[in-house]
Design a protein around this nucleic acid. Structure first.
Lengths: 246, 246
DNA sequence: ATCAGTTGTCTATTGATCTAGACAACCATA
DNA sequence: TATGGTTGTCTAGATCAATAGACAACTGAT
């Protein structure tokens, strides 16, 4: 009977099949059916939404039309693809913001930490001398339980001593920076490229061999203009897309 | 035939009367019919949307159900109220942001400027000595041609010399501050109260006698924490509402 | 009083939506 | 092969959405 939070409305001017299609699209993008990669049977859905099986079939037909699902006689209705999460990229880009309703829960987990000497590229980006100590954080971004991105960030060790602990405590780069006195920061530059996944990323992001990674290389600076973070994030390309505001 | 940007869609699973009702609601909130405070005749709307008059009547009935319009036989359909613009109030509050689709055009005009000695209240808010010179800007906020708010802002004269010129050039406090080197600032505090309109505000905001003003008293600070702006804004209460994020 | 223009109401018809039931076609598995 | 579970298809009827036309009821102005 009940179908979760909001029941479908009759006589609302919106056809039942469309309301059901919209809800199922949301559920698919939420990863509700990821374990099986299949929709429940038409009969089950009809019972769940409290409508006739034919009405559910209309909704499924609409999703099939979008290429989101594919019905196979005798087997069931397979989920073909999910809409990708859209990450806005702007001066105020933060991993944990701007997703809106797209995901219920957005987490960031620490995978590894170390102190490294800055390579020439990183040193240039952070405006420090090559060889200077940097704190490196390897983090994993997770949306609704699904791994989304794997990121490696570098912070000048002198200014941001203890950011690893602050990050583990808060689960957020933004909050960790705030704890170290950085009220605000802006995205100074973002480069976007794409590569084939390899190494640890395949395991962390639970990718298939040959999967594509979207790679962003970003420099964040505090409001004084001093670079504070150099990061290289690898996003599973089949799960995200970027939106660059112009 | 054509009804502006997007035509209504048939066989979309969304009833025509609902699509038309939604578009008319937007038009009303946009102030498209403010000159007459009336909807066009049913026959005119039917022709404009390319549907039967009965379909338009269904849409109007839905709006009447919401209390947005009221049909009077022999006269026409009167517009009873507009949804109020919603201003989000948060650490990042700016007049010209956060309105989204609610208004097409949001402007801010300079009404008056002067240099005044800081009163005790203003001096305390800005963290300066009483009697110190301040630049006072009286501005009028306009959304889609309708006056929304009347604001009085004070800036320390020493640090922000020339902000009046920058404001006139850019039409935005945020941009004027940026031109004077304030990349970013945050809303430190906001107080909200309500009074009856009087004096110049009645004329500027084109209010009826006895109209209510929502008054916000706000202090903005730069990222270093130094107060930079003390402002008192009067909003026409029948045109706006605030949304405080918690 | 008359008239033009408006909303209100009624009937009739067509197509889309939704329900109900039955059965065929197909697949995986025991 | 037999069975249970799935999607595909067909028929029939009920309800909603939309069109079409006609006329009543009302208002404001001439």
């Amino acid at each position: 009977m009940n179908a979760g939070a909001g029941m479908i409305e009759r006589r609302s001017g919106v056809a039942l099949w469309r309301q059901i299609a919209d809800r199922m699209r949301l559920a698919i993008n939420n990863g509700d059916y990821d374990e099986t990669a299949m929709m429940p049977s038409e009969a089950t859905l009809a019972e769940k939404f409290g409508v006739n099986r034919h009405t559910v079939r209309s909704a499924l037909a609409a999703l099939a039309d979008e290429g989101m699902v594919r019905a196979v006689q005798g087997v069931g209705t397979l989920i073909e693809r999910r809409d990708r999460l859209t990450f806005p990229i702007s001066r105020r880009t933060r991993f944990s913001q701007g997703l809106g309703d797209q995901a219920r829960e957005l987490q960031s987990k620490l995978v590894e930490q170390s102190v490294e000497r800055a390579s020439p590229v990183i040193a240039t980006a952070l405006g420090i001398a090559p060889g200077t100590d940097c704190i490196r954080l390897d983090t994993l971004g997770v949306a609704d339980g699904k791994p989304i991105s794997s990121a490696t960030s570098y912070f000048p060790a002198e200014r941001f001593a203890g950011i690893d602990a602050a990050y583990q405590r808060t689960g957020s780069i933004t909050k960790a920076l705030a704890a170290l006195g950085v009220d605000d920061y802006v995205r100074r530059s973002t480069e976007i490229s794409a590569v084939h996944a390899e190494g640890a990323d395949v395991r962390l992001l639970k990718l298939s061999p040959g999967a594509i990674l979207l790679v962003t290389t970003a420099i964040n600076a505090d409001t004084g203009g001093s670079p504070i973070q150099y990061s290289r994030s690898r996003f599973a390309a089949d799960r995200v897309k970027f939106f660059v505001e112009t």
